[in-house]
C-alpha cells in the first residue's frame, strides 16, 4: 500500500496537489482518465512525508493519505 492513494477516476487534473506538495513528490500522469484529464500520481514515495496537504487541498476528494 502506498502512502498516497488516488481515486484516479475522480481527478480533474487541477494540479493543486502538485503545487502545494512541500516535497514535490506528486506529478501528473502521462495517461488520461475517463474524464479526459491527466490524473495526479505519487512519483516519489520515498520522499513523501505523509503530511496530508495534497488531500486537504484537493477539491475533488480524490486523495487519501497514510503514514507508516
Amino acid at each position: 500500500m502506498t502512502k498516497v492513494v488516488f481515486d484516479e477516476e475522480k481527478c480533474k487534473g487541477c494540479e493543486l496537489c502538485v503545487q502545494f506538495c512541500p516535497r514535490k513528490v506528486i506529478v501528473m500522469a502521462e495517461r488520461i482518465n475517463a474524464k479526459g484529464y491527466h490524473p495526479a500520481v505519487l512519483a516519489d514515495e520515498e520522499n513523501c512525508i505523509s503530511c496530508g496537504i495534497c488531500a486537504r487541498m484537493c477539491p475533488d476528494a480524490v486523495i487519501e493519505v497514510f503514514k507508516p
Binding site: 502512502k3 505523509s50 503530511c51 488531500a55 475533488d60 487519501e64
Partner: peptide
Amino acid sequence: MKQVYSVPKSLQPRSTHY
C-alpha cells in the same frame, strides 16, 4: 499504516460537476 487523511463520510462518493 495509519490514515492521515480520509474522505469525509458525509460526502457522497461521486464526482462533482465543479
